[in-house]
Write a protein that binds this DNA or RNA. Structure first.
Length: 134
DNA sequence: CGCGTGACTTGTA
DNA sequence: TTACAAGCCACGC
Protein backbone atom coordinates (compact mmCIF):
# COMPACT_ATOMS: atom_id res chain seq x y z
CA UNK A 1 0.00 0.00 0.00
CA UNK A 2 1.02 3.55 -0.12
CA UNK A 3 4.00 3.55 2.12
CA UNK A 4 3.57 7.17 2.96
CA UNK A 5 1.57 10.07 1.84
CA UNK A 6 2.87 13.33 0.64
CA UNK A 7 4.65 14.47 3.73
CA UNK A 8 4.35 18.10 4.46
CA UNK A 9 4.09 18.53 0.74
CA UNK A 10 0.75 20.07 1.42
CA UNK A 11 -2.07 20.11 3.91
CA UNK A 12 -4.40 18.60 1.35
CA UNK A 13 -3.51 15.02 2.26
CA UNK A 14 -4.22 15.76 5.88
CA UNK A 15 -7.60 17.10 4.88
CA UNK A 16 -8.38 14.05 2.77
CA UNK A 17 -7.40 11.67 5.53
CA UNK A 18 -9.62 13.56 7.94
CA UNK A 19 -12.51 13.30 5.49
CA UNK A 20 -12.07 9.54 5.29
CA UNK A 21 -12.46 9.40 9.04
CA UNK A 22 -15.94 10.88 8.91
CA UNK A 23 -18.44 8.15 9.86
CA UNK A 24 -21.02 7.22 7.29
CA UNK A 25 -24.27 9.06 7.85
CA UNK A 26 -22.50 11.89 9.59
CA UNK A 27 -21.23 15.22 8.33
CA UNK A 28 -18.78 17.84 9.50
CA UNK A 29 -18.29 21.45 8.58
CA UNK A 30 -15.22 22.76 6.80
CA UNK A 31 -14.07 24.30 10.04
CA UNK A 32 -14.45 21.04 11.92
CA UNK A 33 -12.71 19.19 9.13
CA UNK A 34 -9.73 21.49 9.30
CA UNK A 35 -9.68 21.02 13.04
CA UNK A 36 -9.80 17.23 12.69
CA UNK A 37 -6.93 17.48 10.24
CA UNK A 38 -4.91 19.33 12.81
CA UNK A 39 -5.23 22.61 10.98
CA UNK A 40 -7.38 24.82 13.20
CA UNK A 41 -8.80 27.98 11.65
CA UNK A 42 -8.11 26.66 8.18
CA UNK A 43 -11.68 26.11 7.04
CA UNK A 44 -10.97 27.79 3.76
CA UNK A 45 -8.06 25.49 3.16
CA UNK A 46 -10.37 22.53 3.70
CA UNK A 47 -12.70 23.84 1.05
CA UNK A 48 -9.85 24.48 -1.32
CA UNK A 49 -8.51 20.97 -0.82
CA UNK A 50 -11.90 19.45 -1.56
CA UNK A 51 -12.26 21.62 -4.65
CA UNK A 52 -9.01 20.12 -5.91
CA UNK A 53 -10.48 16.61 -5.85
CA UNK A 54 -11.46 14.96 -9.08
CA UNK A 55 -14.79 13.35 -9.87
CA UNK A 56 -13.57 9.78 -9.52
CA UNK A 57 -12.03 10.32 -6.12
CA UNK A 58 -12.72 7.83 -3.35
CA UNK A 59 -12.76 10.58 -0.76
CA UNK A 60 -16.25 10.97 0.74
CA UNK A 61 -16.25 14.72 0.18
CA UNK A 62 -20.04 14.80 0.34
CA UNK A 63 -19.82 14.48 4.13
CA UNK A 64 -18.38 17.96 4.38
CA UNK A 65 -20.87 20.80 4.58
CA UNK A 66 -20.86 24.47 5.39
CA UNK A 67 -21.63 26.08 8.72
CA UNK A 68 -25.13 25.33 9.93
CA UNK A 69 -25.42 22.33 7.64
CA UNK A 70 -25.56 24.34 4.44
CA UNK A 71 -24.40 22.83 1.17
CA UNK A 72 -21.96 25.41 -0.13
CA UNK A 73 -21.79 23.58 -3.42
CA UNK A 74 -25.42 24.41 -4.13
CA UNK A 75 -24.42 28.00 -4.72
CA UNK A 76 -21.37 27.39 -6.87
CA UNK A 77 -22.26 24.14 -8.56
CA UNK A 78 -25.91 23.18 -8.12
CA UNK A 79 -25.22 19.99 -10.00
CA UNK A 80 -22.50 18.84 -7.65
CA UNK A 81 -24.53 20.12 -4.75
CA UNK A 82 -27.41 17.91 -5.78
CA UNK A 83 -25.07 14.94 -5.99
CA UNK A 84 -23.92 15.70 -2.49
CA UNK A 85 -27.45 15.86 -1.19
CA UNK A 86 -28.42 12.61 -2.86
CA UNK A 87 -25.38 10.84 -1.47
CA UNK A 88 -26.08 12.09 2.02
CA UNK A 89 -29.75 11.14 1.88
CA UNK A 90 -28.59 7.76 0.70
CA UNK A 91 -26.64 7.50 3.94
CA UNK A 92 -29.66 8.40 5.98
CA UNK A 93 -28.90 12.09 6.46
CA UNK A 94 -32.04 14.19 6.66
CA UNK A 95 -32.59 17.65 5.25
CA UNK A 96 -34.94 20.41 6.25
CA UNK A 97 -37.19 22.45 3.99
CA UNK A 98 -34.43 24.99 3.54
CA UNK A 99 -32.19 22.32 2.07
CA UNK A 100 -29.92 22.20 5.06
CA UNK A 101 -28.57 19.10 6.70
CA UNK A 102 -30.33 18.09 9.85
CA UNK A 103 -28.03 19.26 12.61
CA UNK A 104 -28.38 15.84 14.18
CA UNK A 105 -26.09 14.51 11.49
CA UNK A 106 -23.45 17.07 12.35
CA UNK A 107 -20.60 15.66 14.35
CA UNK A 108 -20.52 17.32 17.70
CA UNK A 109 -17.71 19.70 18.30
CA UNK A 110 -15.17 18.35 20.68
CA UNK A 111 -13.75 20.64 23.29
CA UNK A 112 -14.10 24.26 22.64
CA UNK A 113 -11.60 25.98 20.34
CA UNK A 114 -10.81 28.86 22.59
CA UNK A 115 -11.18 32.08 20.78
CA UNK A 116 -8.38 34.40 21.94
CA UNK A 117 -9.15 38.09 21.92
CA UNK A 118 -9.68 38.22 18.20
CA UNK A 119 -12.21 40.92 18.67
CA UNK A 120 -12.87 42.11 15.16
CA UNK A 121 -12.72 45.83 15.03
CA UNK A 122 -16.25 47.06 14.45
CA UNK A 123 -16.44 49.05 11.22
CA UNK A 124 -16.64 52.38 12.93
CA UNK A 125 -17.95 54.76 10.35
CA UNK A 126 -17.93 58.35 11.58
CA UNK A 127 -21.17 59.98 10.61
CA UNK A 128 -20.94 63.50 9.38
CA UNK A 129 -22.82 66.45 10.79
CA UNK A 130 -22.88 64.90 14.18
CA UNK A 131 -22.87 66.32 17.66
CA UNK A 132 -19.17 66.09 18.17
CA UNK A 133 -18.45 68.88 15.79
CA UNK A 134 -15.10 70.58 16.21
C1' DC B 1 4.82 41.56 -4.42
C1' DG B 2 -0.15 43.09 -4.96
C1' DC B 3 -5.17 41.83 -6.35
C1' DG B 4 -9.11 39.22 -7.05
C1' DT B 5 -11.46 35.02 -6.36
C1' DG B 6 -12.82 30.69 -4.28
C1' DA B 7 -16.57 23.81 -1.92
C1' DC B 8 -15.10 28.90 4.64
C1' DT B 9 -16.41 31.08 9.36
C1' DT B 10 -17.95 34.26 12.71
C1' DG B 11 -19.71 38.66 14.48
C1' DT B 12 -22.00 42.96 13.73
C1' DA B 13 -25.26 46.07 11.38
C1' DT C 1 -33.01 37.42 6.11
C1' DT C 2 -28.83 39.85 3.53
C1' DA C 3 -24.40 42.57 3.39
C1' DC C 4 -19.97 43.71 5.09
C1' DA C 5 -15.61 43.22 7.66
C1' DA C 6 -11.62 40.59 9.08
C1' DG C 7 -8.87 36.32 9.25
C1' DC C 8 -7.18 32.33 6.79
C1' DC C 9 -4.81 29.66 2.62
C1' DA C 10 -3.86 28.87 -2.48
C1' DC C 11 -3.64 30.12 -7.25
C1' DG C 12 -3.48 32.94 -11.61
C1' DC C 13 -2.43 37.41 -13.61
Amino acid sequence: MGTQVARGAGSYERIYRAVRRIPRGQVVTYGQLADLAGLPRRARLAGYALAALHGSTSVPWHRVVGAGGRLSLMRRSPDAGLTQRIRLENEGVRFDARGRVDLKALVRRRGRPERPAVKRGPPVRPRRGSTSAT
